[in-house]
Simulated scan of single mutants.
Amino acid sequence: MQTPDQTETIRRLNDAARAMPGVTCLASATLGFQALPADDRSAALALIAGFSKFDDNNDPYGEHDFGAIFRLGSGVWTQDRPEADEAIAMTVFWKIDYYEPNLAFGSDAPWDEQRTKRVLTIMLSNEY
């Protein structure tokens, strides 16, 4: 079990990973996400980088390692889940996983930057 300080460090590292994918972490996007129009990909990536809608449902351990963003029928992207499901045209999930440096196994110390590589995966919800 990790300490509150370790959880805070994980959260800080995950926030940095989302803000600078490909720099502070490895980043991977599924074929479905890559097939979106460039404007949609850009809007989605901007929301992921600045994601702040963490709660007990998507962040039960306080690590900021998962989230969902939504494209409404109007074409607007948002972090806020609409009240009516029919208003959602598309849902994109993002997830951060922790691996040991050679990426063969999961990390046993996700708070330690030297012993952990982060991988940010971005996918359409229907690809999950």
Rank of each mutant, 00 (worst) to 15 (best):
Q2T: 11
Q2D: 10
P4C: 03
P4K: 09
T7A: 10
I10L: 01
I10F: 02
R11S: 06
R11H: 11
D15H: 09
D15W: 04
A17W: 06
A17N: 02
R18Y: 02
P21S: 09
V23Y: 11
C25R: 00
A27V: 14
S28N: 12
L31P: 02
F33N: 03
A35D: 13
L36C: 05
A38Y: 04
A38G: 01
A38F: 07
S42R: 15
A43P: 09
L47I: 02
I48N: 01
F51V: 06
F51R: 07
F51M: 09
S52M: 05
K53L: 11
F54S: 00
N58W: 03
N58F: 08
P60T: 03
E63T: 13
H64W: 02
G67V: 04
A68Q: 13
L72E: 07
T78L: 08
D80H: 10
E83V: 15
D85E: 15
E86W: 11
V92P: 00
F93C: 01
D97W: 00
D97G: 06
Y98I: 06
Y99G: 10
E100R: 15
P101E: 04
F105Y: 14
F105S: 12
G106M: 06
S107W: 06
D108M: 10
A109K: 10
W111V: 01
E113F: 07
E113W: 01
R115W: 02
R115A: 15
T116Q: 04
L120F: 07
T121F: 09
I122T: 07
L124Q: 08
L124R: 15
N126F: 13
N126E: 13
